[in-house]
Lab assay of single mutants.
Amino acid sequence: SRHTFEINGERWTVEGVSEELKEILRAAERASNDEAERLLRLALKLI
């Protein structure tokens, strides 16, 4: 499935992501810059 999210003013669209990964991306959208970066690094390990 496709998911579009915005982090630090940048929009991203990813396809074929699991519900778990979507949850991480949604958390990154709400997080501070440092926390968002940490969550994105974690998410990339899952891809």
Rank of each mutant, 00 (worst) to 15 (best):
V14S: 02
A43P: 00
I24G: 00
N8P: 00
F5V: 03
G16Q: 06
E23V: 09
E10Y: 08
K22F: 14
T13R: 04
E15A: 10
R38T: 08
E35L: 07
R2K: 15
L39A: 02
V14F: 15
A28C: 06
K22Y: 15
N33H: 15
L44V: 10
R38C: 06
A43T: 02
R11L: 15
I7M: 03
G9D: 03
L46R: 03
T13V: 15
L39T: 01
R30W: 08
V14L: 09
N33R: 14
R2L: 15
E29P: 01
E10S: 08
H3T: 08
A28H: 03
R41M: 05
E20S: 03
K22C: 14
R38D: 11
E23L: 12
L44Y: 06
S32H: 10
L44K: 04
R26L: 14
E20Y: 13
A36D: 01
R26W: 11
T4L: 04
G16V: 10
A27F: 05
I24W: 03
S1Y: 09
G9T: 02
E15F: 10
E6P: 01
R38E: 12
S18C: 13
E15I: 15
S1V: 11
L25V: 02
L42R: 05
V17T: 05
L42E: 08
V17L: 12
L44A: 05
I24M: 06
W12S: 00
N33L: 14
L39R: 01
L21D: 01
R30C: 11
R41Y: 13
L40N: 01
F5Y: 05
L40M: 07
S18E: 04
H3N: 10
T4G: 03
R26G: 07
E35V: 08
S18W: 09
E15L: 12
K22D: 09
A31W: 04
L25C: 03
R2G: 09
I24T: 03
A28I: 10
R38G: 05
I47W: 07
S18D: 09
N8T: 04
R2C: 14
L21P: 01
L40I: 10
R41K: 13
E15D: 10
T4Q: 08
I47H: 06
T4P: 03
R41D: 07
I24K: 01
V17M: 07
R26H: 14
S1Q: 14
I47F: 07
L46I: 14
A28L: 12
A28V: 09
L46P: 00
F5K: 00
T13A: 05
E19R: 05
A43F: 15
A28R: 01
A31C: 08
T4E: 11
A28M: 08
V17W: 08
A36N: 03
L42P: 00
E6L: 15
W12Y: 15
L25H: 00
N33C: 11
L44T: 03
S32K: 09
S1N: 15
A36W: 07
H3P: 05
E6H: 11
E29Y: 04
G9R: 01
E19K: 08
S1K: 12
D34V: 13
R11D: 04
E19D: 10
V14Q: 01
G9H: 02
K45N: 09
L40E: 01
E20M: 12
A31L: 09
L42I: 12
L44E: 05
E35Q: 06
R26E: 12
V17Q: 06
L21Q: 03
S32T: 14
E20L: 08
I24E: 00
N33Y: 14
R30D: 12
A27H: 11
L42A: 03
G16K: 07
R30L: 14
S32D: 15
I24P: 00
S18F: 09
R30G: 14
E23A: 14
T13C: 10
K22Q: 11
K22V: 15
E10D: 07
L46A: 07
E10W: 09
T13M: 08
I24N: 00
E23H: 11
E35T: 07
E19I: 08
K22G: 10
L39G: 00
R26F: 13
R41P: 00
A43H: 02
R26K: 12
S32Y: 05
I7A: 02
I7H: 02
A43N: 01
S32P: 01
E37D: 12
R38S: 11
A27D: 08
V17K: 03
D34F: 10
H3I: 12
T13P: 02
E29H: 07
R26P: 00
E10G: 05
T4M: 04
A31M: 06
E10F: 10
H3V: 14
E15K: 04
R26Y: 09
R11Q: 12
S1E: 15
A31N: 04
L25N: 00
L46D: 02
N33Q: 14
L44N: 03
R30H: 12
A36S: 09
K22M: 15
N8Y: 06
H3F: 15
K45T: 11
E19V: 08
A27T: 09
R11T: 14
E29S: 07
T13Y: 11
L25K: 00
D34T: 13
L39D: 00
A27M: 13
L21G: 03
I7K: 01
L46S: 05
I7G: 00
E6F: 15
R30N: 14
I7S: 02
V17G: 09
A28D: 01
G16I: 13
A28Q: 02
K22A: 12
I7F: 05
E10H: 12
E23P: 01
E6M: 15
K45V: 07
A28W: 07
T13E: 07
E29F: 05
A31G: 06
G9S: 02
E35F: 07
A27C: 07
V17D: 06
E37H: 06
D34W: 10
E15G: 06
V17A: 15
G9P: 01
S18M: 05
E15Y: 15
V17H: 06
S18T: 14
T4C: 14
T4S: 08
R11V: 14
K45P: 01
I47T: 04
E29Q: 08
A36C: 08
S1F: 10
L42G: 03
L46H: 05
F5D: 00
A43E: 01
L39C: 04
A31E: 05
S1H: 15
A36Q: 12
E37M: 10
E19H: 08
S1A: 12
E6S: 05
N8R: 05
R2I: 15
R2F: 08
A43Q: 01
E20C: 11
L42N: 05
N8G: 05
L46G: 04
R11E: 07
R30Q: 11
L46C: 06
K22W: 13
W12I: 09
S32V: 06
I7V: 08
G9F: 03
L25F: 14
N33E: 14
